[in-house]
Write a protein that binds this DNA or RNA. Structure first.
Lengths: 232, 232
DNA sequence: CGTCCGGCTGAGCGCACCCTGAAGACCTGG
DNA sequence: CCAGGTCTTCAGGGTGCGCTCAGCCGGACG
């Protein structure tokens, strides 16, 4: 059971990541895949044009400091030849003042060092703005709309706090899949190696609100983590 | 049932910016994107014809001083082959330039140096005139007419200051969507990384006027930002 | 049936977030 | 140069939120 949730495989947004630091590229890539995107990673912009026509990304995550052509040059290429959104990775140091002006042509930017969860959130937000991604997710009679921050259960609005909403959004993106507490801690809080009780407390609060007007959706899988799933 | 307001994301107006100064082009581009337009930037008019058929802009922001063919020549090309609106960027205070541009059919012009917010306002105004964008927005019993700068609540006029109006217009354009204070600061003030209290103060002032004669429309979403929305 | 361990949750505390009144800076027209 | 209005800064205060902690619950297993 629970084979491929098919989070929309055919319609999954494509994201191209251009980042020369392998560790960062890999981390960004897996975070984005985890969030349901189709991801391609390149260490430089050498064959950007080819990549744009072949992979046809909906969005490009672009480092500014790159070997060969730098991020700003690549940004222009993207703008000229494709309708893809662009999220830039910029460093905050002495030189950045000069670059600050440059990264403003992007749809959004993230300042290094950044929390993966924030990058994912910004990528999702840009894709939504561009209309490449539906902003609402449905699980059973539960409806989560990212834009308006509205959550409905059986058409009745549910009031959530910011943290509860972030948690729910993550679980919704992973719906049908069991996610560990550690995984949740890094995705939602950006914490590595932290007290899992933090997750338990917020799951508890979330459940109280979600399941006030319906059966259980957020299930505990003992020893493994949690799943958001509607029983049939 | 209130799913996604879908502010018209899929039908977002397309704006082509032709500007050879990188910094200006980038700044203009990001300001327009912030305002919800789909933007393409080009440093010259070399392949204007291709761009018009490929990108099919609803409006072109056109610098006059350009390498190769100048703005006026390009303006004629646009008029001949497309129905796009045109907003020209005129260098100095050249009154003659201004008249020339209008004579030859630019829809509006902005004199350099200009405030980004003003350019955005003029672009929006032209698009509205061309019928590409609705000029009045309604949220519950609140009516915001961007053209005439008239705001009505339950048919009673409300007097707003310039800043309050800009803020309200932005929130109205984003209605139903939660917008962060940072986002508001860049969209309404053009500030990056500024004190959020500035927004809070103006929201407070705006509320006092808007909600004098009716229930709350401008809601705080703690930890996320503000939304303009009528409750059901 | 008893023990152990993972998970749940109520209570409480400190803080971050937000609101608002007031005063200073600025601008504009008379 | 003053007067009125607007914008911004500042500081105080209220409060909801996030997190920690500790005790309890209950499933798993012998």
């Amino acid at each position: 059971m629970v084979v491929a949730q098919n989070v929309g495989v055919s319609t999954a947004a494509r994201v191209l990541v251009i980042e020369d630091a392998e560790a960062i590229g890999a981390a960004v890539g897996s975070a984005l895949r985890e969030a349901g995107f189709q991801v391609q990673i390149r260490p430089d912009g050498r064959d950007l044009e080819g990549e744009l026509t072949r992979f046809r990304p909906d969005l490009v995550v672009l480092d500014i400091m790159l070997p060969g052509r730098d991020g700003f040059t690549l940004l222009e290429v993207i703008r000229r030849t494709s309708g893809a959104g662009v999220v830039m990775l910029t460093a905050r140091d002495g030189v950045s003042d000069r670059l600050r002006g440059l990264d403003r042509g992007a749809d959004d930017y993230v300042i290094k060092p950044f929390v993966l969860a924030e990058l994912v959130a910004r990528v999702s937000a840009v894709l939504r703005r561009l209309g490449r991604t539906p902003s609402t997710v449905q699980i059973g009679d539960l409806l989560v709309d990212a834009d308006s921050a509205v959550v409905l259960r059986a058409d009745a609005p549910i009031e959530l706090t910011a943290t509860e909403l972030r948690l729910l959004r993550y679980l919704a993106a992973q719906r049908g899949r069991v996610v560990g507490k550690t995984q949740i801690l890094t995705a939602v809080w950006g914490y590595e190696d932290y007290d899992p009780n933090l997750v338990e407390v917020h799951v508890s609060a979330l459940r109280r609100k979600l399941e006030e007007h319906g059966p259980r959706l957020l299930h505990t899988v003992r020893g493994l983590g949690y799943v958001l799933r509607a029983e049939e």
